[in-house]
Design a protein around this nucleic acid. Structure first.
Lengths: 216, 216, 216, 216
DNA sequence: GATGAATGAGTATTCATTCAT
DNA sequence: TATGAATGAATACTCATTCAT
């Protein structure tokens, strides 16, 4: 069993090695233009070896998403575990957490966006697909909880917590995508962080219930 | 002249015919998995004919973006032309306009996102690229104007109008992408419209300066 | 009939117009890379029109060869018509004539070389092919005659006149091809004319029967 | 090391296998009409494999030229290494050698002629192009040396050795091309060898300095 | 497990040729 | 006759994936 375990760990190490390489290559070239050959070279392995650890290109790519989602969930749950904090404090912590996730892997949004394609979904192991769905579900659930809490406590505007969470997440992903695109096209300076901070600030103002009564 | 004109119109009709087919095929399969053969078949033309009207696949795709952007700009400028309206009214009209644009072509966000790729940019006629950049620039400029006006009149929170416009646009594109993805993955009901309405509402609350003084 | 004739002449004019354009385009791009579209544009005609005058691309190309061969034969026969001249004088005149032909159309050798391909031959009208063969036959026959005469008169070395003519022609075409290739590869100065003069001079020395007896 | 070496040798074997197939196909169909598919089939390999060993079609073709040029240089240098021989004997040996080269690969002239195209040159690896230029340069240099020697010793007519070498080479290539063309067109017997012998004989007579003085 | 050579299906693009006007 | 838009067959090249060693 000790041997079994060691083998298991060794195998996991290899998977990580490949994923690190894949992340670099996919970041640089995007999914279509990155070749398995590229990734193998970056990982200092042979193309064939990649297939010992990942069913195919799509699954390798999806595994990257999985890893980010795992990290995302970890951070979100950590935020939710802040026992003494109120929903507003948790929301602020959540914003920080999500920016951390973005910095951990800026591809997060593009990755998740890639999952949209039904062809992609078809090529995944049902198991992997389930894991992904599960992680997304849990993460969103955790976010929803904060909003539900905030609404319940009368701190946030009284809207469906799921809708609030969707808006929150959309704002996050929208800023990342738009600011990245904008930079590509107009080749100007990168204001992503600032815009993100502003966006979250506005959102926060938007959902707050004011003492004197909001527009609602 | 009559003949010249008729030919010109005939040619334009063909372009449209191809673009309509391309839109259908790209919507269904995405850029990479759509083949020129597919599009030709959809357009009931031969593959070679496509190349009489579009330099290559990338340019055909980008032409779709161009068309949406033209429509977008048209709608935005129309909003801005509402003479008697104040910034807050214009902003509300803008939200409506953008949803119309989305309904006119739901691919708008994905298309614009596709432009990000430097490989895509390389394959475009400089002229087409310029047109696209110009349209994006004008559209954003028009949106910025509304915010600048609102800030100047003390109606909107005092932030950089460009940043406000970026946030506005990010929210729009983020909701579309996220709600589309979500539907793909969880196969649930499509709450896009409602989420968009909520998102814009929150945004509007967020930028408003309250009578009793904002948080700023 | 006057009308018939005029039409005939008009038709011939068009053929010439196309051939002139084709010659320019083929010279610049070579057979494979030249497109019928290119030629049509150069001729200020539409692609379809080309096919009213030439069966296909191969035949258009072969027609250029035919024209040069016609000119070649004309010049050779003119040389042979120099009544009072002896074979040695005629040979010198022939050399001059052939260089004129080369200047008239430097593609002569490449054109003739192109005919080699059996696929080319297959694509020609039998009639055109016959004309070409006929012209080549007559031209070579005319050249052979000079050598036969020279041999008979004891001026030229006693070898088969056809073989002498073949050698003569080979030398001519070899110099043109080699000097052209050489220039392409080494990008140096063009010594074609000088080499041609030297080559013919050596050839002349080589076939001469010396007063004191040759090496033969 | 044994393994490295074996792999290297195996790889070289494959290259040869492909080149042999390519030679057959190119001989039969010429460059343009030969397809990579044809060659792959002839080599009993898949099209993709060809690209593991050759960058593209042009480079595969050029590699054939390279091989012949290598053999050519080998033979020429061997001739030049005949220590006790005088220039006249070397020249005769050279003629033999060149005919051997032709028999080794009758495409030699056509191949070299193909290199003329600037489009071909563009598609080659700079390294391959350099090798080719180098081989041509060395071969011509070696031939020039024989003539320079002959001129210096008063055996050959006093002309620029480079020009003599060009003429010599032109004669060789011209005879091959012309006799091949002629056979194609007139479908008669192949007199190539005889014509080549005669041509070289005449050339030899032409450059010889006679005891009683030449025509020069 | 690891390799990497081989595969071969897949595709954008070109261009000689046709034919309705 | 002339046009030139449309055709569609043809082909070089790529790359995810496999499998013998």
């Amino acid at each position: 069993m000790g041997i079994q375990e060691r083998k298991e760990r060794e195998k996991e190490r290899r998977r990580q090695q490949i994923m690190v390489a894949a992340k670099r290559v996919f970041s640089e070239k995007g999914f279509s233009r990155a070749t398995m050959e590229d990734i193998a070279q970056e990982a200092e392995l042979s193309p064939g070896t990649l297939y010992l650890y990942f069913k195919n290109k799509e699954e390798l790519y999806a595994s990257l998403s999985l890893r980010i989602l795992q990290y995302l969930l970890l951070r979100i749950e950590h935020v939710n575990a802040l026992k003494p904090a109120g929903p507003d404090e948790k929301l602020k912590a959540l914003m920080e957490a999500m920016y951390d996730v973005y910095e951990f892997d800026p591809l997060i949004i593009i990755n998740m966006f890639h999952l949209q394609s039904s062809d992609t979904l078809k090529n995944l192991t049902p198991q992997l697909l389930d894991e992904i769905k599960d992680l997304i579900g849990k993460s969103m659930g955790s976010i929803v909880k904060i909003f539900r809490d905030g609404v319940a406590k009368g701190l946030f505007i009284d809207r469906h917590p799921v809708a609030l969470a969707d808006t929150f997440w959309s704002l996050f992903s929208g800023v990342i995508l738009w600011m990245t695109s904008k930079k590509m096209i107009s080749e100007g300076k990168d204001h992503l962080k600032e815009t993100l901070v502003l966006a979250f600030d506005l959102f926060y103002r938007g959902i707050q219930v004011k003492a004197t009564g909001g527009s609602d």
